[in-house]
Amino acid sequence: MEQSSDNHYGLVLAGVGLALALAIAAGVFWGTANLPVDERIKALLRLPDAQRNLELIIWEWRLPRVIAVALVGAALSLAGVIMQALLRNPLADPYLLGLSSGASAAATASIVWLPAVVMTTVGLPLLAFAGAMVAFLVTLGLAFRPGRGMDKLMLILAGIAVSLFFSSVSAFFLHIADPHVTRNALSFLMGSASGTKWSQLWPLAVVVPVACLAVFALSRHLDAVLLGDERAVALGVPLNAMRVGLFSVAALLAGLAVAIAGIVGFVGLVVPHMARLLVGASHRRLVPLAVVLGMIVLVVVDLLCRIVLAPEELPLGVLLALFAAPPFVVILRRVRRGL
């Protein structure tokens, strides 16, 4: 029976690995510009007779963008797995800690108030990441009780309160801002990886693999947490230390993802459930599959955002909300039935 289960898992991983390779290839080769296939291949391989403008499109625009959304999908999916396991809540997602609203408030305030020279020097991604981390620290501070550690209910309530506060700040700045400035802020709030540069990728490129290995190493502890806090402690799980550490990892992943692609919802909520339907709840199998599925989902959705209304682009948040609504309804029905 176990051999059959291992074979099934291997086939699933091979299938999603192939799907990821095809999705990345499609993301690189197709877009708003209609280019001949043979010329695309020459530009990708950087052959001597390749057109230099096509090389620019593929290597400086499309490839960093595709890698960016793949890393963002992986980061948000892994953060979603962490949140749902530690809180034992199937409706938890990476933004529950107030990260998205903190990043939104910081980005909106920066666009509205900071001079262009400051924005150019510091960069919007760094400012958004700083806002996300501030929101996380406030949420963590409100939920932590000296002598008793992390309170799960307080963490959820604190996250909601912090999210409402920073969302109100963002709305205030958008209301008083010049309409031309507001458009830039709304573009960030709806999510987009357009204009991503190679230099912006290295933080997530370093953090995602390290976080995957760390969470994978703690997979048995996460399985124990699903049995309840008392049983997990009885099995030797350092619950409070692990919660603080993994919540920090989830916050870092989500903050870096927001800094690169803006507010990208539903990925961290829906993708872990898609992975569970395929391989079950064991985190040793769930973590790798959820990461790869998150990459596939965001690469495909970003490609559709580029080609559906070409040459115009749709924000990531628009199509993600449309595609994620049916799976989200299924999740709600499963939660209601107690499955």
Results as ranks from 00 to 15, higher is better:
59 W>Q: 11
59 W>Y: 09
60 E>K: 14
62 R>A: 06
63 L>D: 03
64 P>G: 09
64 P>A: 11
65 R>A: 05
66 V>T: 10
69 V>P: 00
69 V>F: 04
69 V>T: 13
69 V>G: 01
69 V>Y: 00
71 L>S: 08
71 L>W: 03
72 V>Y: 05
74 A>G: 12
75 A>Y: 04
75 A>D: 05
75 A>N: 02
77 S>P: 10
78 L>R: 04
79 A>G: 15
81 V>C: 14
81 V>F: 08
82 I>S: 00
83 M>C: 08
87 L>Y: 01
91 L>V: 02
92 A>Y: 03
93 D>E: 15
94 P>V: 00
94 P>R: 03
94 P>T: 05
95 Y>V: 06
96 L>R: 02
98 G>W: 05
98 G>E: 06
99 L>S: 07
100 S>G: 12
101 S>T: 12
104 S>M: 02
106 A>Y: 04
114 L>R: 06
114 L>N: 05
115 P>A: 11
116 A>Q: 14
117 V>Q: 15
119 M>K: 09
119 M>S: 12
121 T>G: 13
124 L>H: 08
125 P>K: 03
126 L>K: 08
126 L>C: 03
127 L>V: 13
127 L>E: 04
131 G>K: 07
131 G>F: 08
135 A>Q: 08
136 F>M: 11
137 L>E: 09
138 V>T: 11
139 T>P: 12
140 L>E: 04
140 L>F: 13
140 L>I: 10
143 A>C: 11
144 F>V: 14
146 P>G: 13
147 G>F: 15
148 R>P: 13
148 R>F: 15
